[in-house]
């Protein structure tokens, strides 16, 4: 951006904290921690999700850990409740995460309903969100693309609403842009598309719809070249945000000449 009058892109504010990057990334499915770190840096991500799991007793006590590659002083860690199928397990996982990360309150709540679709169980999600907000957590919540539900989660006090674009890991892209638009128009908290992005254009579309950010894992980690795809996603999210702020032209059925008609020869 060489034009001095061109303002830098506005930051994403979540739970009172500002982030220059609107691309949030997962840390699963990479071949090793080195690739995880390089892809995360290429994405320019400042918020990265992590999963909370039992240690393998007798196996990985001395092994390098994910947090050596992505230390908490460098990134905002977003512990998730992936793999939880009820509110109680999700709340328990968040409490373990808070202890693990020294009182860190930001969590990604996801309560799944079904192993085949990994769609959220919205009833359990609402229940868990209420408990976590009451317990002082800053809850970023994975949900379906239902605008009414998104509103309910915001009313409960979630700090970000994160509707899916398509099933987790599917790469199908944005399946219902009108629902997303409705969620964005109603929301007073950031709306972050979480899950379903397949390639850079999907991320750009999410941002052009006015979403505040995009969270993805498989689209980057599963690409043939994850680091290059991370770079592509960074550009797409920035381009999509800039296009949203710039305001697209209306769609028309017929042509409208770009060159003046006056002064043509002949």
């Amino acid at each position: 951006m060489n034009d001095p009058k061109l303002a830098p892109l506005d930051p994403l504010v979540i739970a009172g904290r500002s982030y220059g990057s609107r691309l949030l990334t997962g840390t699963g499915k990479y071949k090793d921690f080195d690739e995880t770190r390089r892809a995360t840096l290429a994405a320019g991500a400042q918020i990265v999700t992590v999963a909370i799991r039992r240690v393998n007793i007798g196996q990985d006590a001395g092994a390098p850990s994910l947090l050596d590659a992505l230390p908490p002083h460098e990134f905002t860690l977003l512990p998730n409740t992936a793999g939880c199928y009820n509110a109680a397990d999700a709340v328990r996982t968040c409490r373990l995460a808070r202890e693990l990360l020294d009182g860190h309150a930001l969590v990604k709540l996801e309560v799944l309903g079904d192993e085949k679709t990994l769609f959220p169980d919205v009833v359990e999600t609402l229940k868990a969100a209420e408990q976590l907000v009451a317990d002082g957590f800053d809850v970023m919540v994975y949900t379906s693309d239902d605008p009414i539900l998104a509103r309910r989660l915001e009313e409960i006090g979630c700090v970000a609403v994160m509707p899916l674009a398509a099933p987790i890991g599917s790469g199908l892209g944005i399946q219902n842009r009108y629902n997303l638009l409705e969620i964005v128009e109603n929301a007073k908290v950031p709306v972050i598309v979480d899950a379903g992005v397949g390639t850079a254009s999907d991320a750009a579309i999410a941002m052009e719809l006015g979403c505040d950010g995009v969270l993805m894992n498989t689209a980057i980690a599963g690409a043939r070249d994850p680091v290059l795809m991370a770079h592509a996603m960074k550009l797409a999210v920035e381009a999509g945000r800039a296009a949203f702020k710039a305001g697209r032209i209306p769609r028309k059925r017929y042509a409208s000449a770009s060159s003046p008609l006056d002064g043509t020869i002949g």
Binding site: T27, T49, A51, I52, R53, L77, N80, L100, L215, N217
Partner: peptide
């Protein structure tokens, strides 16, 4: 007793 840590996840 449960001992947990952070691992890669989305």
């Amino acid at each position: 007793v449960e001992i947990v840590h952070a691992i890669g996840g989305g």
